[in-house]
């Protein structure tokens, strides 16, 4: 699918995730969503039960088409977990993946401020406001493709290193196995019998 053009007016969509009760249990997600609608260039704010699940992702894709969104803010969990998920999601709706921004309402907010409803909600609003402000300046990016050297290095020739090296080698990959001792085998070579089978270690 060809990417849609993003020239012209900013049209930002904000998606606030309940994450079941993971976020909604400690943050007033309805208030955050309402607040998001008041932010500059935000044309729609949607609350999802689980943004990362298929229905949630479909809502994002539909909203991108329906509202002709050219920036997307997803207020859910840490970008360290789901940034690839949502980049792929907006890409499937024809938006460059770099036009998506996340606000971390779960790891950095609801999970660490339970029982502080007002404080957590105020923080969530700020995180969304920050993400929207940043999103206004996002630009499409093109990722560089680099070749992969078809060989692997395995550091350590104990049972784990040997197994990994053999698996890769059997699959047809070149492997360099580096062992600091004079022989491979590691600690396992020093054991007599091993559990649970009670057979010889070596």
């Amino acid at each position: 699918m060809s990417e849609r053009q993003v020239d012209g007016d900013l049209r930002i969509g904000v998606f606030v995730c309940d994450c079941g009760l993971n976020i909604a249990g400690a943050v007033d997600c309805a208030a955050v969503s309402e607040y998001a609608e008041t932010l500059p260039d935000v044309v729609c704010a949607v609350r999802n039960k689980y943004t990362c699940a298929d229905p949630g992702q479909n809502e994002i894709k539909n909203a991108i088409r329906e509202h002709r969104l050219n920036r997307v803010v997803i207020a859910s969990c840490t970008p360290r977990q789901h940034e690839p998920t949502f980049r792929q999601c907006v890409l499937e709706a024809g938006l460059n993946p770099y036009l998506m921004e996340m606000a971390n309402l779960r790891e950095h907010c609801s999970w660490v401020h339970p029982g502080d409803w007002d404080g957590a909600t105020a923080k969530a609003k700020d995180l969304v406001a920050g993400a929207v402000a940043r999103a206004r300046f996002l630009e499409p990016q093109v990722e560089m493709t680099v070749p992969v050297t078809k060989a692997a290095l395995v550091i350590g020739g104990g049972v784990a290193g040997m197994e990994a090296a053999l698996e890769l080698a059997d699959a047809g990959h070149k492997v360099v196995l580096v062992e600091k001792e004079a022989s491979i085998g590691g600690i396992m070579a020093q054991l007599d019998k091993t559990y649970p089978t009670m057979d010889c270690s070596i």
Partner: peptide, 19 residues
């Protein structure tokens, strides 16, 4: 396993070596 590692054509075994 160790013997297989030692003679596998796809494995270059460097013992007594450090990265």
């Amino acid at each position: 396993k160790a013997i297989d590692v030692g003679r596998h054509p796809n494995i270059e075994l460097l013992t007594y070596s450090e990265v």
